[in-house]
Write a protein that binds this DNA or RNA. Structure first.
Length: 473
RNA sequence: GCCCCAUUCGUCCAGCGGCCUAGGACGCCGGCCUUUCACGCCGGUAACACGGGUUCGAAUCCCGUAUGGGGUACCA
Protein backbone atom coordinates (compact mmCIF):
# COMPACT_ATOMS: atom_id res chain seq x y z
CA UNK A 1 0.00 0.00 0.00
CA UNK A 2 1.36 3.40 -0.95
CA UNK A 3 1.62 6.23 1.55
CA UNK A 4 -1.62 8.13 2.09
CA UNK A 5 -2.16 11.58 0.69
CA UNK A 6 -4.54 13.77 2.64
CA UNK A 7 -5.68 17.31 2.14
CA UNK A 8 -7.00 20.09 4.27
CA UNK A 9 -9.25 22.12 2.04
CA UNK A 10 -10.81 25.12 3.78
CA UNK A 11 -12.85 27.79 2.08
CA UNK A 12 -11.35 31.23 2.67
CA UNK A 13 -14.40 32.72 4.30
CA UNK A 14 -12.79 34.38 7.28
CA UNK A 15 -10.61 33.46 10.20
CA UNK A 16 -9.78 29.85 10.91
CA UNK A 17 -11.98 28.56 13.68
CA UNK A 18 -11.70 25.72 16.13
CA UNK A 19 -13.71 23.32 14.01
CA UNK A 20 -11.61 23.76 10.89
CA UNK A 21 -8.46 23.61 12.95
CA UNK A 22 -9.55 20.26 14.31
CA UNK A 23 -10.16 18.99 10.77
CA UNK A 24 -6.73 20.20 9.74
CA UNK A 25 -5.21 18.55 12.78
CA UNK A 26 -6.81 15.17 12.16
CA UNK A 27 -5.64 15.22 8.55
CA UNK A 28 -2.20 16.12 9.74
CA UNK A 29 -2.18 13.45 12.42
CA UNK A 30 -3.14 10.82 9.90
CA UNK A 31 -0.46 11.98 7.48
CA UNK A 32 2.22 12.08 10.13
CA UNK A 33 1.17 8.80 11.67
CA UNK A 34 1.32 6.99 8.36
CA UNK A 35 4.23 8.81 6.82
CA UNK A 36 1.86 10.22 4.26
CA UNK A 37 1.63 13.59 2.58
CA UNK A 38 -0.42 16.57 3.68
CA UNK A 39 -1.71 18.84 0.93
CA UNK A 40 -3.15 22.27 1.62
CA UNK A 41 -5.74 23.42 -0.84
CA UNK A 42 -7.73 26.61 -0.57
CA UNK A 43 -11.24 26.05 -1.91
CA UNK A 44 -11.95 29.44 -3.33
CA UNK A 45 -14.22 28.25 -6.10
CA UNK A 46 -16.60 31.05 -5.37
CA UNK A 47 -14.30 33.75 -6.71
CA UNK A 48 -16.15 36.53 -4.95
CA UNK A 49 -14.89 35.23 -1.64
CA UNK A 50 -11.19 35.13 -2.34
CA UNK A 51 -9.06 37.71 -0.64
CA UNK A 52 -5.45 37.73 0.40
CA UNK A 53 -6.15 38.44 4.02
CA UNK A 54 -8.55 35.55 4.31
CA UNK A 55 -5.86 33.24 3.04
CA UNK A 56 -3.46 34.57 5.65
CA UNK A 57 -6.19 34.13 8.22
CA UNK A 58 -5.97 30.42 7.48
CA UNK A 59 -2.24 29.93 7.05
CA UNK A 60 -1.14 31.89 10.07
CA UNK A 61 -3.11 29.94 12.69
CA UNK A 62 -2.05 26.65 11.10
CA UNK A 63 1.56 27.66 11.42
CA UNK A 64 0.98 28.78 14.98
CA UNK A 65 -0.45 25.38 15.82
CA UNK A 66 2.49 23.66 14.22
CA UNK A 67 0.35 22.00 11.57
CA UNK A 68 2.59 22.02 8.53
CA UNK A 69 1.85 20.85 5.02
CA UNK A 70 4.00 19.17 2.43
CA UNK A 71 2.38 20.51 -0.72
CA UNK A 72 0.55 23.72 -1.47
CA UNK A 73 -1.17 25.90 -0.71
CA UNK A 74 -2.95 25.31 -3.98
CA UNK A 75 -5.87 27.47 -5.00
CA UNK A 76 -8.86 26.01 -6.66
CA UNK A 77 -9.38 29.26 -8.49
CA UNK A 78 -6.06 28.69 -10.26
CA UNK A 79 -7.29 25.35 -11.47
CA UNK A 80 -10.55 26.52 -12.98
CA UNK A 81 -9.50 25.53 -16.50
CA UNK A 82 -9.16 21.93 -15.43
CA UNK A 83 -12.57 22.05 -13.77
CA UNK A 84 -14.14 23.57 -16.85
CA UNK A 85 -12.59 20.92 -19.06
CA UNK A 86 -14.13 18.27 -16.84
CA UNK A 87 -17.50 19.98 -17.15
CA UNK A 88 -17.18 20.05 -20.91
CA UNK A 89 -16.26 16.42 -21.00
CA UNK A 90 -19.38 15.56 -19.04
CA UNK A 91 -21.59 17.69 -21.29
CA UNK A 92 -20.10 16.09 -24.38
CA UNK A 93 -20.66 12.57 -23.27
CA UNK A 94 -24.18 13.33 -22.15
CA UNK A 95 -23.56 13.03 -18.41
CA UNK A 96 -24.42 16.66 -17.93
CA UNK A 97 -26.62 19.21 -19.66
CA UNK A 98 -27.44 22.89 -19.77
CA UNK A 99 -30.24 24.42 -17.79
CA UNK A 100 -31.54 27.97 -17.83
CA UNK A 101 -34.19 27.71 -15.16
CA UNK A 102 -34.15 30.09 -12.23
CA UNK A 103 -34.87 29.01 -8.68
CA UNK A 104 -38.34 30.47 -8.87
CA UNK A 105 -39.13 28.65 -12.09
CA UNK A 106 -37.90 25.39 -10.61
CA UNK A 107 -40.05 25.81 -7.52
CA UNK A 108 -43.05 26.71 -9.63
CA UNK A 109 -42.61 23.63 -11.80
CA UNK A 110 -42.35 21.35 -8.79
CA UNK A 111 -45.46 22.78 -7.27
CA UNK A 112 -47.33 22.53 -10.54
CA UNK A 113 -46.35 18.91 -10.92
CA UNK A 114 -47.26 18.20 -7.33
CA UNK A 115 -43.74 17.09 -6.57
CA UNK A 116 -41.71 17.87 -3.49
CA UNK A 117 -39.50 20.94 -3.67
CA UNK A 118 -36.33 20.38 -5.62
CA UNK A 119 -35.09 19.96 -9.13
CA UNK A 120 -36.63 17.12 -11.05
CA UNK A 121 -34.57 17.00 -14.20
CA UNK A 122 -36.70 19.67 -15.83
CA UNK A 123 -34.18 20.62 -18.49
CA UNK A 124 -32.90 17.17 -19.30
CA UNK A 125 -34.61 17.00 -22.66
CA UNK A 126 -35.13 20.66 -23.42
CA UNK A 127 -31.88 20.89 -25.41
CA UNK A 128 -30.95 24.20 -23.84
CA UNK A 129 -27.80 25.67 -25.35
CA UNK A 130 -25.04 27.40 -23.42
CA UNK A 131 -25.21 31.10 -22.84
CA UNK A 132 -25.06 33.78 -20.17
CA UNK A 133 -26.75 32.67 -16.98
CA UNK A 134 -27.02 29.07 -18.13
CA UNK A 135 -25.81 26.47 -15.67
CA UNK A 136 -24.60 22.94 -16.22
CA UNK A 137 -26.30 20.18 -14.28
CA UNK A 138 -25.11 16.66 -13.78
CA UNK A 139 -27.54 13.98 -14.85
CA UNK A 140 -27.83 12.01 -11.64
CA UNK A 141 -28.87 8.38 -12.11
CA UNK A 142 -32.55 7.74 -11.43
CA UNK A 143 -32.16 4.26 -10.05
CA UNK A 144 -29.85 2.50 -7.70
CA UNK A 145 -27.96 3.55 -4.62
CA UNK A 146 -24.54 4.91 -3.86
CA UNK A 147 -22.85 3.00 -1.10
CA UNK A 148 -19.52 3.89 0.42
CA UNK A 149 -17.59 2.90 3.46
CA UNK A 150 -16.69 5.77 5.70
CA UNK A 151 -13.73 4.89 7.91
CA UNK A 152 -15.38 6.54 10.88
CA UNK A 153 -19.07 6.10 10.19
CA UNK A 154 -19.14 2.75 8.50
CA UNK A 155 -21.39 1.98 5.58
CA UNK A 156 -23.40 4.89 4.27
CA UNK A 157 -26.14 4.34 1.72
CA UNK A 158 -27.93 6.95 -0.30
CA UNK A 159 -30.70 6.11 -2.71
CA UNK A 160 -30.43 7.86 -6.06
CA UNK A 161 -34.00 9.15 -5.96
CA UNK A 162 -32.75 11.49 -3.32
CA UNK A 163 -30.05 12.99 -5.49
CA UNK A 164 -31.27 15.65 -7.85
CA UNK A 165 -29.47 16.84 -10.97
CA UNK A 166 -27.06 19.16 -9.22
CA UNK A 167 -25.22 22.17 -10.60
CA UNK A 168 -21.58 21.67 -11.49
CA UNK A 169 -21.03 24.95 -13.30
CA UNK A 170 -22.64 28.22 -12.41
CA UNK A 171 -24.32 30.69 -14.70
CA UNK A 172 -21.18 32.81 -14.76
CA UNK A 173 -19.15 29.86 -15.97
CA UNK A 174 -17.40 29.12 -12.65
CA UNK A 175 -17.20 25.53 -11.43
CA UNK A 176 -18.90 24.59 -8.17
CA UNK A 177 -17.33 22.90 -5.20
CA UNK A 178 -18.60 19.48 -6.25
CA UNK A 179 -16.82 19.26 -9.59
CA UNK A 180 -13.72 21.05 -8.31
CA UNK A 181 -13.57 18.59 -5.48
CA UNK A 182 -13.71 15.54 -7.71
CA UNK A 183 -11.20 16.90 -10.19
CA UNK A 184 -8.73 18.15 -7.61
CA UNK A 185 -8.85 15.11 -5.39
CA UNK A 186 -8.18 13.01 -8.45
CA UNK A 187 -5.48 15.23 -9.89
CA UNK A 188 -3.75 15.42 -6.53
CA UNK A 189 -4.06 11.69 -5.99
CA UNK A 190 -5.75 12.22 -2.66
CA UNK A 191 -6.20 8.88 -0.94
CA UNK A 192 -8.08 9.96 2.19
CA UNK A 193 -10.67 12.69 2.48
CA UNK A 194 -10.90 13.61 6.15
CA UNK A 195 -13.34 16.39 7.02
CA UNK A 196 -16.38 17.40 9.00
CA UNK A 197 -19.59 15.43 9.02
CA UNK A 198 -21.40 18.39 7.52
CA UNK A 199 -19.95 17.29 4.18
CA UNK A 200 -21.11 13.70 4.41
CA UNK A 201 -24.11 14.38 2.22
CA UNK A 202 -21.99 15.61 -0.66
CA UNK A 203 -20.13 12.32 -1.03
CA UNK A 204 -22.64 10.55 -3.31
CA UNK A 205 -22.60 13.50 -5.72
CA UNK A 206 -18.83 13.62 -5.87
CA UNK A 207 -18.73 9.86 -6.30
CA UNK A 208 -21.13 10.11 -9.24
CA UNK A 209 -18.89 12.68 -10.89
CA UNK A 210 -15.88 10.54 -10.10
CA UNK A 211 -17.34 7.62 -11.93
CA UNK A 212 -18.64 9.67 -14.87
CA UNK A 213 -15.18 11.14 -15.28
CA UNK A 214 -13.68 7.69 -15.38
CA UNK A 215 -11.38 8.32 -12.45
CA UNK A 216 -11.29 4.77 -11.14
CA UNK A 217 -10.92 4.05 -7.45
CA UNK A 218 -12.22 6.97 -5.35
CA UNK A 219 -10.52 8.13 -2.16
CA UNK A 220 -11.38 6.72 1.22
CA UNK A 221 -13.69 8.97 3.20
CA UNK A 222 -13.56 9.72 6.90
CA UNK A 223 -16.12 12.12 8.30
CA UNK A 224 -15.25 13.62 11.65
CA UNK A 225 -17.89 14.24 14.29
CA UNK A 226 -18.89 17.88 14.39
CA UNK A 227 -17.71 20.31 17.00
CA UNK A 228 -20.69 21.99 18.60
CA UNK A 229 -21.41 24.86 20.95
CA UNK A 230 -23.24 24.59 24.26
CA UNK A 231 -26.52 24.57 22.36
CA UNK A 232 -25.23 21.52 20.50
CA UNK A 233 -25.23 23.36 17.21
CA UNK A 234 -22.41 23.25 14.70
CA UNK A 235 -19.76 25.78 15.60
CA UNK A 236 -20.30 28.93 13.64
CA UNK A 237 -18.03 31.89 13.14
CA UNK A 238 -20.88 34.31 13.55
CA UNK A 239 -22.36 32.86 16.70
CA UNK A 240 -19.44 31.40 18.53
CA UNK A 241 -16.27 32.91 19.80
CA UNK A 242 -13.88 30.44 18.25
CA UNK A 243 -11.21 32.25 16.25
CA UNK A 244 -7.85 30.60 16.65
CA UNK A 245 -6.14 33.95 16.69
CA UNK A 246 -8.02 34.92 19.84
CA UNK A 247 -6.70 31.91 21.69
CA UNK A 248 -3.17 33.01 20.95
CA UNK A 249 -3.93 36.50 22.21
CA UNK A 250 -5.41 35.22 25.43
CA UNK A 251 -2.29 33.30 26.18
CA UNK A 252 -3.04 29.74 25.23
CA UNK A 253 -0.03 27.76 24.10
CA UNK A 254 -0.27 26.19 20.66
CA UNK A 255 0.86 22.87 22.09
CA UNK A 256 -2.02 22.95 24.58
CA UNK A 257 -4.46 23.93 21.88
CA UNK A 258 -3.40 21.05 19.66
CA UNK A 259 -3.53 18.63 22.55
CA UNK A 260 -7.03 19.77 23.46
CA UNK A 261 -8.21 19.62 19.87
CA UNK A 262 -6.87 16.09 19.47
CA UNK A 263 -9.09 15.01 22.35
CA UNK A 264 -12.29 15.98 20.59
CA UNK A 265 -13.62 12.92 18.86
CA UNK A 266 -10.63 10.85 19.81
CA UNK A 267 -8.86 9.62 22.90
CA UNK A 268 -5.81 7.49 23.52
CA UNK A 269 -6.61 3.99 24.71
CA UNK A 270 -4.44 4.34 27.81
CA UNK A 271 -6.40 7.37 28.99
CA UNK A 272 -3.42 9.69 29.28
CA UNK A 273 -4.79 12.91 27.91
CA UNK A 274 -2.09 15.49 28.31
CA UNK A 275 0.89 14.27 26.34
CA UNK A 276 3.43 15.36 23.74
CA UNK A 277 2.34 15.61 20.14
CA UNK A 278 4.83 12.92 19.11
CA UNK A 279 2.92 10.43 21.21
CA UNK A 280 -0.40 11.59 19.88
CA UNK A 281 0.87 11.09 16.34
CA UNK A 282 1.99 7.61 17.25
CA UNK A 283 -1.29 6.63 18.87
CA UNK A 284 -3.70 8.31 16.48
CA UNK A 285 -5.61 6.29 13.91
CA UNK A 286 -8.72 7.22 11.96
CA UNK A 287 -10.35 3.96 12.97
CA UNK A 288 -10.35 5.05 16.61
CA UNK A 289 -12.11 8.34 15.99
CA UNK A 290 -15.59 8.31 17.50
CA UNK A 291 -18.87 9.27 15.86
CA UNK A 292 -20.65 11.66 18.13
CA UNK A 293 -20.50 15.43 18.15
CA UNK A 294 -18.30 17.04 20.77
CA UNK A 295 -18.60 20.25 22.72
CA UNK A 296 -15.38 22.20 22.97
CA UNK A 297 -15.08 22.72 26.70
CA UNK A 298 -13.01 25.74 27.63
CA UNK A 299 -12.55 24.45 31.18
CA UNK A 300 -10.72 21.46 29.88
CA UNK A 301 -8.64 23.62 27.56
CA UNK A 302 -7.76 25.77 30.54
CA UNK A 303 -6.61 22.77 32.48
CA UNK A 304 -4.49 21.48 29.63
CA UNK A 305 -3.03 24.92 29.04
CA UNK A 306 -2.17 25.23 32.72
CA UNK A 307 -0.36 21.91 32.55
CA UNK A 308 1.69 23.04 29.59
CA UNK A 309 2.51 26.33 31.27
CA UNK A 310 3.72 24.54 34.39
CA UNK A 311 5.98 22.36 32.29
CA UNK A 312 7.72 25.31 30.60
CA UNK A 313 11.28 25.99 31.63
CA UNK A 314 11.70 29.41 33.24
CA UNK A 315 13.60 31.04 30.40
CA UNK A 316 11.05 29.90 27.86
CA UNK A 317 8.23 31.04 30.10
CA UNK A 318 9.75 34.48 30.47
CA UNK A 319 10.12 34.70 26.73
CA UNK A 320 6.52 33.65 26.00
CA UNK A 321 5.02 35.88 28.63
CA UNK A 322 6.89 39.00 27.58
CA UNK A 323 4.31 40.18 25.02
CA UNK A 324 1.67 40.08 27.73
CA UNK A 325 3.92 41.94 30.14
CA UNK A 326 4.86 44.72 27.80
CA UNK A 327 1.65 45.10 25.85
CA UNK A 328 -1.42 47.12 26.67
CA UNK A 329 -2.21 44.74 29.50
CA UNK A 330 0.75 45.90 31.52
CA UNK A 331 -0.28 48.15 34.41
CA UNK A 332 3.17 49.68 34.83
CA UNK A 333 5.51 51.89 32.81
CA UNK A 334 6.99 49.74 30.00
CA UNK A 335 10.56 50.50 30.91
CA UNK A 336 10.00 49.27 34.46
CA UNK A 337 9.67 45.74 33.18
CA UNK A 338 12.59 43.44 33.81
CA UNK A 339 12.58 40.06 32.14
CA UNK A 340 15.12 38.63 34.61
CA UNK A 341 12.69 39.19 37.47
CA UNK A 342 10.02 37.23 35.69
CA UNK A 343 12.43 34.47 34.84
CA UNK A 344 13.58 34.23 38.44
CA UNK A 345 10.01 34.02 39.70
CA UNK A 346 8.77 31.92 36.81
CA UNK A 347 8.09 28.68 38.71
CA UNK A 348 5.95 30.57 41.21
CA UNK A 349 3.99 32.34 38.50
CA UNK A 350 3.65 29.26 36.33
CA UNK A 351 1.85 27.21 38.94
CA UNK A 352 -0.65 30.00 39.52
CA UNK A 353 -1.83 30.85 36.04
CA UNK A 354 -3.96 29.16 33.45
CA UNK A 355 -3.31 31.56 30.58
CA UNK A 356 -0.22 33.63 29.86
CA UNK A 357 -2.33 36.76 29.95
CA UNK A 358 -2.84 36.27 33.68
CA UNK A 359 0.84 36.58 34.44
CA UNK A 360 1.12 40.37 34.82
CA UNK A 361 -1.28 40.44 37.74
CA UNK A 362 1.08 38.35 39.84
CA UNK A 363 4.10 40.57 39.44
CA UNK A 364 2.62 43.99 38.89
CA UNK A 365 3.55 45.09 42.41
CA UNK A 366 7.20 44.51 41.64
CA UNK A 367 7.21 46.78 38.61
CA UNK A 368 4.98 49.46 40.09
CA UNK A 369 6.88 52.35 41.66
CA UNK A 370 4.80 52.34 44.84
CA UNK A 371 1.64 50.90 46.32
CA UNK A 372 -0.97 53.62 45.91
CA UNK A 373 -3.98 51.64 46.89
CA UNK A 374 -4.48 48.62 49.06
CA UNK A 375 -7.07 45.96 48.55
CA UNK A 376 -9.59 46.87 51.21
CA UNK A 377 -10.47 43.39 52.36
CA UNK A 378 -6.85 42.40 52.58
CA UNK A 379 -5.97 45.53 54.53
CA UNK A 380 -8.76 45.00 57.02
CA UNK A 381 -7.89 41.41 57.59
CA UNK A 382 -4.15 41.77 57.95
CA UNK A 383 -3.80 45.24 59.40
CA UNK A 384 -7.01 46.00 61.29
CA UNK A 385 -8.18 42.63 62.51
CA UNK A 386 -4.59 41.64 63.14
CA UNK A 387 -4.25 43.96 66.12
CA UNK A 388 -0.54 43.46 66.48
CA UNK A 389 0.18 44.72 62.98
CA UNK A 390 1.73 48.06 64.04
CA UNK A 391 4.21 46.26 66.23
CA UNK A 392 4.81 43.63 63.58
CA UNK A 393 5.64 46.27 61.01
CA UNK A 394 7.84 48.21 63.42
CA UNK A 395 9.83 45.15 64.31
CA UNK A 396 10.05 43.87 60.75
CA UNK A 397 11.34 47.24 59.58
CA UNK A 398 13.82 47.18 62.39
CA UNK A 399 14.98 43.68 61.62
CA UNK A 400 15.22 44.26 57.92
CA UNK A 401 17.23 47.45 58.14
CA UNK A 402 20.32 45.47 58.95
CA UNK A 403 19.84 42.86 56.22
CA UNK A 404 21.51 42.90 52.84
CA UNK A 405 18.52 41.54 50.88
CA UNK A 406 20.46 39.08 48.85
CA UNK A 407 19.29 35.90 50.54
CA UNK A 408 15.59 35.00 50.49
CA UNK A 409 15.93 32.57 53.38
CA UNK A 410 17.44 35.21 55.62
CA UNK A 411 14.56 37.55 54.88
CA UNK A 412 12.06 34.81 55.60
CA UNK A 413 13.71 34.01 58.89
CA UNK A 414 13.73 37.67 59.86
CA UNK A 415 10.06 38.28 59.12
CA UNK A 416 8.84 34.99 60.52
CA UNK A 417 10.99 35.47 63.55
CA UNK A 418 9.08 38.61 64.39
CA UNK A 419 5.79 36.75 64.22
CA UNK A 420 7.02 33.92 66.40
CA UNK A 421 8.51 36.22 69.00
CA UNK A 422 5.33 38.27 69.24
CA UNK A 423 3.19 35.16 69.39
CA UNK A 424 5.05 34.09 72.46
CA UNK A 425 5.10 37.48 74.07
CA UNK A 426 1.41 38.17 73.55
CA UNK A 427 0.38 34.58 74.04
CA UNK A 428 -1.63 34.59 70.85
CA UNK A 429 -0.96 33.65 67.29
CA UNK A 430 0.62 36.62 65.54
CA UNK A 431 1.04 36.38 61.79
CA UNK A 432 3.85 38.48 60.47
CA UNK A 433 3.72 37.43 56.86
CA UNK A 434 0.27 38.82 56.16
CA UNK A 435 0.90 42.48 57.16
CA UNK A 436 4.21 42.44 55.32
CA UNK A 437 2.57 41.07 52.22
CA UNK A 438 -0.16 43.69 52.24
CA UNK A 439 2.37 46.45 52.83
CA UNK A 440 4.55 45.26 49.98
CA UNK A 441 2.01 44.16 47.42
CA UNK A 442 -1.25 45.81 48.38
CA UNK A 443 -2.93 42.39 48.46
CA UNK A 444 -3.33 39.53 50.84
CA UNK A 445 -2.57 36.85 48.30
CA UNK A 446 0.22 36.34 45.86
CA UNK A 447 3.45 34.60 45.09
CA UNK A 448 5.83 33.79 47.94
CA UNK A 449 7.40 36.95 49.29
CA UNK A 450 11.00 36.23 50.15
CA UNK A 451 12.62 35.81 46.80
CA UNK A 452 10.45 38.52 45.35
CA UNK A 453 11.67 40.86 48.09
CA UNK A 454 15.27 40.37 47.06
CA UNK A 455 14.24 41.33 43.55
CA UNK A 456 12.22 44.34 44.66
CA UNK A 457 15.20 45.55 46.66
CA UNK A 458 15.83 46.80 50.14
CA UNK A 459 14.96 50.43 49.51
CA UNK A 460 11.59 49.76 47.95
CA UNK A 461 10.69 47.16 50.58
CA UNK A 462 11.44 49.43 53.50
CA UNK A 463 9.69 52.37 51.86
CA UNK A 464 6.55 50.33 51.42
CA UNK A 465 6.67 48.93 54.94
CA UNK A 466 7.03 52.43 56.36
CA UNK A 467 4.25 53.77 54.18
CA UNK A 468 1.90 51.09 55.41
CA UNK A 469 2.99 51.62 59.00
CA UNK A 470 2.29 55.34 58.71
CA UNK A 471 -1.15 54.60 57.36
CA UNK A 472 -1.97 52.70 60.54
CA UNK A 473 -1.60 55.73 62.78
C1' G B 1 -41.34 17.75 4.53
C1' C B 2 -37.45 14.56 2.53
C1' C B 3 -32.42 12.43 3.02
C1' C B 4 -28.14 11.28 6.05
C1' C B 5 -25.85 10.78 10.82
C1' A B 6 -25.59 10.31 16.00
C1' U B 7 -27.20 8.94 21.32
C1' U B 8 -22.13 6.13 28.00
C1' C B 9 -21.36 10.82 34.26
C1' G B 10 -22.74 18.39 33.65
C1' U B 11 -18.41 18.07 29.78
C1' C B 12 -14.52 15.20 26.90
C1' C B 13 -12.78 10.34 26.26
C1' A B 14 -12.46 4.55 27.34
C1' G B 15 -15.55 0.31 26.57
C1' C B 16 -15.96 -2.96 20.31
C1' G B 17 -20.75 -10.08 23.90
C1' G B 18 -18.72 -12.30 29.69
C1' C B 19 -12.77 -8.94 33.05
C1' C B 20 -18.71 -3.50 33.94
C1' U B 21 -21.77 -3.73 41.04
C1' A B 22 -19.25 0.77 33.64
C1' G B 23 -13.07 3.09 33.82
C1' G B 24 -10.05 7.82 33.14
C1' A B 25 -9.91 13.23 32.62
C1' C B 26 -12.15 18.23 33.31
C1' G B 27 -15.63 20.51 36.53
C1' C B 28 -17.91 20.45 41.25
C1' C B 29 -17.83 18.99 46.66
C1' G B 30 -14.91 17.39 51.03
C1' G B 31 -10.11 16.52 53.35
C1' C B 32 -4.61 16.68 53.84
C1' C B 33 -0.36 19.91 53.10
C1' U B 34 0.45 25.37 54.06
C1' U B 35 1.86 31.78 58.80
C1' U B 36 -0.78 34.20 51.83
C1' C B 37 -2.66 32.53 47.22
C1' A B 38 -1.60 28.42 44.57
C1' C B 39 0.63 23.70 43.34
C1' G B 40 0.53 18.73 44.98
C1' C B 41 -1.86 14.56 47.30
C1' C B 42 -6.27 11.76 49.09
C1' G B 43 -11.51 10.93 48.90
C1' G B 44 -16.51 11.85 47.05
C1' U B 45 -20.39 13.19 43.29
C1' A B 46 -22.34 11.66 38.69
C1' A B 47 -23.97 8.17 32.91
C1' C B 48 -25.04 3.10 29.33
C1' A B 49 -32.16 7.72 26.00
C1' C B 50 -36.53 4.24 25.89
C1' G B 51 -38.99 -0.35 24.20
C1' G B 52 -38.58 -4.87 21.88
C1' G B 53 -35.64 -8.81 20.13
C1' U B 54 -30.91 -12.20 19.33
C1' U B 55 -27.88 -14.81 23.08
C1' C B 56 -26.46 -19.06 28.50
C1' G B 57 -24.93 -13.81 28.83
C1' A B 58 -25.72 -6.96 25.90
C1' A B 59 -23.38 -0.49 27.30
C1' U B 60 -21.57 -3.61 23.39
C1' C B 61 -25.39 -7.12 17.84
C1' C B 62 -30.54 -6.36 15.29
C1' C B 63 -35.35 -3.69 14.90
C1' G B 64 -38.49 0.22 16.40
C1' U B 65 -39.52 4.81 19.16
C1' A B 66 -37.79 9.27 21.15
C1' U B 67 -34.37 13.09 21.20
C1' G B 68 -30.41 15.83 19.06
C1' G B 69 -27.59 17.20 14.89
C1' G B 70 -26.19 17.74 9.71
C1' G B 71 -27.84 18.31 4.73
C1' U B 72 -31.55 19.62 1.41
C1' A B 73 -28.28 26.57 -2.83
C1' C B 74 -25.82 28.90 -9.27
C1' C B 75 -21.97 28.21 -0.14
C1' A B 76 -18.36 24.99 0.74
Amino acid sequence: MTAPRVRFAPAPTGFLHVGSARSALFNWLHARHTGGTMVLRIEDTDASKKTEEFVDAILEPLEWLGIDWDEGPFFQSDRAEMHKAAVEQLVEDGSAYYCDLTRDQIDAKSEEAGLPAGYHGWSRDRAVTDGPGVVVRFRAPDDGVTVFDDVIRGKVEVSHDNVEDFVIRRGDGSPTFLIANAVDDHEMSISHVIRGEDLLNTVPKVLMLWEALGYGEPPVYAHLPLLVNEQRKKLSKRRDDVALGDFAKKGYLPEAMVNALALLGWGPADGVEVRPIEQIIELFTLETVNKSAAFFDMKKLDHINAEYIKALDPARFAELVEPHMTGDDAPWPVDAYRSEVVEALAPEIQQRIVKLSEAPAWVSWIFTPSIDSYDEKSWNKAMVKGKASPRVLDEVINALESESFDDAEVLEAAVMGVGNRLSEELATRVMSQAPVRVALTGHGAGIPLWQAMTLLGKGACLDRLRAARARLD
